[in-house]
Design a protein around this nucleic acid. Structure first.
Length: 501
RNA sequence: GGCCCCAUCGUCUAGCGGUCUAGGACAUCACCCUUUCAAGGUGAGGACACGGGUUCGAGUCCCGUUGGGGUCACCA
C-alpha cells in the first residue's frame, strides 16, 4: 500500500471553526490509522483577508485538540514551505506551463467588463460566468496587450463538451457535464494563485494521497480533476466530508448567523470559545468523532487510540448533520467525572484564576471532587463554587427570602441559625463528617428536616441558592468564616422581620 | 433559478435483502434516591418522508415526487 498523506489546509482568516476542526480531525485520523503523515498547509493566497494573528490561533487550537502535524508551519518538512504565500514561484511557474501547453490562457478583461458581461447574461436569464472572450485572442493580440502593459489573469481552458466523471470515497461516482464548467481564474493579476490552482499544485508537490475536505468543495471537484489531468498528474483519492449544520438544521454553522440553543444562548462556532468554556480536548475529539462517523459498537465514550483501530474513511456518512451541542456537554461531563481529583484540580485552577479568585491548592484539591459531578464544563466551577476563593471582605449575604427555606419564616430561621452557632461551638473539629453527624442528630429535636436545616446553613454560608453542598462548603470556608457568615445571615433575617409585620 | 449532494426517533446514529413487532446515545417525561444543584438507578414516549417499481421477501436495490443542504468570485 502506498503511503497515506493527508493535509488540513485552512485559510488563516480568524479563529478555527468547529467544522474546520472536524475536517482536521478526520484527516489526522486517516493519516494516523495508516501510519501516514498529516500535513498542515496554510492557504493565505487572499491578500485582502490577511490576518497576522490567525496562524498562531490556528496552531494553538490544533495542538490543544492533540492534532499534531508531521509537516507544516513551525515543524517544517521536506516539501516546504507550507505557507502558500511563500510558494508563489511554484504557482507562477505551473500556470505558465499550462499557458505554454495550451491548457490555459491570459485574460485581459477588466473587472468592469466582467461585471457588464454578467449583467447582460442575467438580463437574458442565462447563468452567470465569464464569456471566454480572451480565450480566442490571437498570439499577436496577446503580445500587443502585454506590450501595452495591460494587466491580466491566467484562466483555465475548461473543456467545452463531454463529461467529467469524479470519484469520491464517500459518495461514489458523479458525472458532470463539461458544458457547465467555467474558465476559472488560476492566477490573479497580483501574481497570487486562486485556490483552484494552489490546491492542485500543492497537493501534487506535497504528495498528498487523500484529499479530505468539506462538501462545500464538491461543486469545484470536476474543475480540479480537469486541472490535475491538464497537468498530466495522477489523481489522489478524494473524499468530501458532510457539513455540520446549525443545531436546528437550517444552514451551515456560521459566526454571521450564530446558532442558539433552546434557551436562546449562543452556541459557539469557534474552537477557542470551547477552550474558554472548559471543554476538555479529549471530550471534543470523542464528540466530533461520532458525527458523520460512528465508533461502531454501542459505546459513546472511547479513546482516540481505539478510534484509530477502526477508522475507515469509506464509513463516513454522506449526509449532513445538525450540530448536536447538548451531546458535547454530556460528553465533556463524562470526561470530567472520569478525572482523578488532582488532575481535575489542575484543570480547574486556570479558570478560577481567570475569574480573579485567590486560589490555594490545598482547598482546591478538596473542592475538586465536590464539584466533579456538578459541572459540565470547567468554567462552570466559577459560578458554582468560586465564592470559596473570593475575598471574604467582599462577601455579600444572600437576601432574607433566599435564606428562608420551605415552610419556614425569618424568625424560625434565625432560631435555627442561633442554635447552629451554639452547636458549632461545641464541635471539636470542623470537617464535613463531624458537621454532618452533629447536624443530622439534631433535626428532630429542632423540629426541621434535613432539607430545611442544611438549606438555611448552605445559603447563609455560600450566599447563593445553588452551590456546593453545605458541610463541604463550611469545611472549605473554615470555622471562623463560616461562623461569621452565619452571624451575617442572622442580621439579614432580623432586618427582615419587621417588614413581615 | 442552474448544477450537484443528501434523506432512519426532536438530535447524533446502528442497519450494508430475510435475524427489524428497527438497536444505542443525547434530549424530554415519570418514578426512586437525595442536602440546593447535580450525579446515580429504573422506566416511558419517540423514526424507516411519500409514491411507484425490482424481488418469494425492501429501512436496505432502482425510478419519480417532496423536503433539506451545498455551490455558482481575480474568497477559501
Amino acid at each position: 500500500m502506498t503511503v497515506v498523506r493527508t493535509r488540513f489546509a485552512p485559510s488563516p482568516t480568524g479563529s478555527l471553526h468547529i467544522g474546520g476542526l472536524r475536517t482536521a480531525l478526520f484527516n489526522w485520523l486517516l493519516a494516523r490509522a495508516h501510519n501516514g503523515q498529516f500535513i498542515l498547509r496554510i492557504e493565505d493566497t487572499d491578500q485582502k483577508r490577511f490576518d497576522p494573528t490567525a496562524l498562531q490561533t490556528l496552531t494553538e487550537a490544533l495542538r490543544w485538540a492533540g492534532l499534531q502535524w508531521d509537516e507544516g508551519p513551525e515543524v517544517g518538512g521536506p516539501y516546504g514551505p507550507y505557507v502558500q504565500s511563500e510558494r508563489l514561484h511554484h504557482y507562477q511557474q505551473w500556470a505558465q506551463w499550462l499557458v505554454d501547453n495550451d491548457k490555459a490562457y491570459k485574460c485581459f478583461c477588466t473587472p468592469e467588463r466582467l461585471e457588464q458581461v454578467n449583467k447582460e447574461k442575467q438580463a437574458r436569464k442565462e447563468p452567470p460566468g465569464y464569456d471566454r472572450f480572451c480565450r480566442s485572442l490571437t498570439p499577436e493580440q496577446v503580445a500587443a496587450k502585454e506590450a501595452a502593459g495591460e494587466k491580466y489573469v491566467i484562466r483555465f481552458k475548461a473543456p467545452l463538451e463531454g463529461q467529467t466523471v469524479v470519484h469520491d470515497l464517500i459518495r461514489g461516482e458523479t458525472t458532470f457535464e463539461n458544458s457547465t464548467l467555467q474558465d476559472m481564474v488560476l492566477l490573479k493579476s497580483d501574481g497570487f494563485p486562486t485556490y483552484h490552482l494552489a490546491v492542485v499544485v500543492d497537493d501534487y508537490l506535497m504528495q498528498i494521497s487523500h484529499v479530505l475536505r468539506a462538501v462545500e468543495w464538491f461543486p469545484s471537484f470536476p474543475l480540479h480533476v480537469q486541472i490535475w489531468q491538464a497537468f498530466g498528474w495522477p489523481l489522489p483519492h478524494f473524499a468530501h466530508l458532510p457539513v455540520m449544520l446549525n443545531p436546528n438544521g437550517k444552514g451551515k454553522m456560521s459566526k454571521r448567523n450564530p446558532p442558539r440553543d433552546e434557551k436562546g444562548n449562543i452556541i459557539p462556532v469557534f474552537v477557542h470559545d470551547y477552550m474558554k468554556q472548559g471543554i476538555l480536548p479529549e471530550a471534543m475529539i470523542n464528540f466530533l468523532t461520532n458525527i458523520g462517523w460512528n465508533f461502531g459498537d454501542e459505546r459513546d465514550i472511547f479513546t482516540v487510540e481505539e478510534t484509530l483501530q477502526r477508522f475507515r474513511i469509506e464509513d463516513v456518512n454522506p449526509a449532513n448533520s445538525a450540530f448536536p451541542y447538548p451531546k458535547l456537554e454530556w460528553t465533556n461531563a463524562q470526561y470530567i467525572r472520569a478525572l482523578p481529583a488532582e488532575t481535575l484540580a489542575q484543570h480547574l485552577k486556570p479558570f478560577l484564576l481567570e475569574a480573579g479568585l485567590a486560589v490555594d491548592d490545598e482547598r482546591l484539591l478538596k473542592l475538586a471532587p465536590v464539584v466533579q459531578t456538578r459541572i459540565t464544563r470547567l468554567a462552570d466551577v466559577v459560578p458554582l463554587a468560586g465564592f470559596i476563593f473570593a475575598d471574604p471582605a467582599a462577601f455579600q449575604p444572600a437576601p432574607a427570602e433566599k435564606i428562608i427555606q420551605k415552610k419556614m419564616d425569618a424568625a424560625s430561621s434565625v432560631a435555627i441559625l442561633e442554635k447552629s452557632l451554639a452547636l458549632i461551638d461545641t464541635l471539636p473539629s470542623f470537617d464535613t463528617n463531624t458537621l454532618l453527624e452533629a447536624f443530622s442528630a439534631v433535626t428532630t429535636e429542632w423540629g426541621v428536616n434535613n432539607s430545611q436545616l442544611f438549606g438555611v446553613l448552605r445559603v447563609a454560608v455560600s450566599g447563593q441558592t445553588v452551590s456546593t453542598p453545605t458541610f463541604e462548603t463550611m469545611e472549605l470556608l473554615g470555622r471562623e468564616e463560616s461562623v461569621r457568615r452565619i452571624q451575617l445571615a442572622i442580621e439579614t433575617l432580623r432586618a427582615a422581620i419587621p417588614a413581615e409585620g
